[in-house]
């Protein structure tokens, strides 16, 4: 079952999805096996042996008008980002395509607070927006076969972090020492829809130092003082 709130990416629509996600989770229905909030819809995986579609629909329609009480405030995160060229294979090309200097691209990327629209594509992969229009580029025509884990990448009006190594079509402009997914942590994904994220530039030296610590998702703490 899919509840759609629109067809486009916008914050208002996404907040409704997050609110419904919270409201349905709070019902703790045994019939629901999985909830998948996305930019503009909530996918509800259910067990039809426990509840037929029609009954579940009635149950969910009842909570739809009252979503505002379930608005989710989210957490604030500061994610260290190293823009060293050795870790950022596409940074020069992005700067060239946007007629900006590398420093301007970094300032642009690290100067904004991003909203976590959804987590998908890969375990713990966050879709963060909105990326400044000045550095928005289409996806690569030919995806890279191997993007290293923790790579920070951009495409269109979005930025993301690859939690695990994967093929991918986004432009890699940096890397974080932080783990965004850890199957032994509870919950395994660091970020959740509705959270806010800033990237804070770190030197290569600092990146190497933080990478050695290899702290897991459980060790990470959201910012006490919101960045916004």
């Amino acid at each position: 079952m899919v509840v759609e709130f629109g067809e486009e990416i916008d914050l208002h629509t996404n907040r409704k999805v997050t609110a419904l996600h919270a409201a349905v989770s709070a019902l703790e229905l045994a019939s629901i096996t999985d909830l998948v909030p996305t930019f503009r819809s909530l996918a509800i995986h259910y067990d039809p042996d426990i509840v037929p579609f029609a009954e579940l629909e009635i149950e969910l329609r009842a909570i739809l008008p009252d979503l505002s009480s379930h608005s989710f405030s989210g957490r604030d995160w500061s994610i260290p980002a190293c823009y060293d060229l050795d870790l950022s294979p596409d940074l020069q090309a992005v700067a060239d395509s946007c007629s900006l200097s590398i420093e301007q691209v970094i300032r642009c990327h690290s100067g904004a607070t991003y909203h976590v629209y959804m987590v998908g594509f890969l375990p713990g992969y966050p879709y963060l927006g909105d990326l400044a229009a000045e550095i928005a580029l289409p996806r690569k025509i030919t995806p890279s076969l191997r993007i290293p884990a923790r790579s920070i990448a951009i495409a269109e009006r979005m930025t993301a972090v690859y939690p695990i190594e994967s093929p991918g079509g986004w432009h890699v402009i940096g890397r974080t020492p932080m783990r965004l997914f850890d199957e032994t942590a509870t919950p395994p994904a660091l970020l959740a829809p509705g959270d806010r994220v800033r990237f804070s530039p770190v030197t290569r030296h600092e990146y190497d130092r933080l990478s050695k610590n290899d702290s897991g998702v459980d060790d990470a703490q959201p910012n006490k003082n919101p960045a916004t």
Binding site: D34, L35, P37, A189
Partner: peptide, 11 residues
């Protein structure tokens, strides 16, 4: 594996 699709974890 159920219950973690919201975090991008496949079944």
């Amino acid at each position: 594996r159920y219950g973690l699709q919201s975090m991008g974890v496949p079944v």
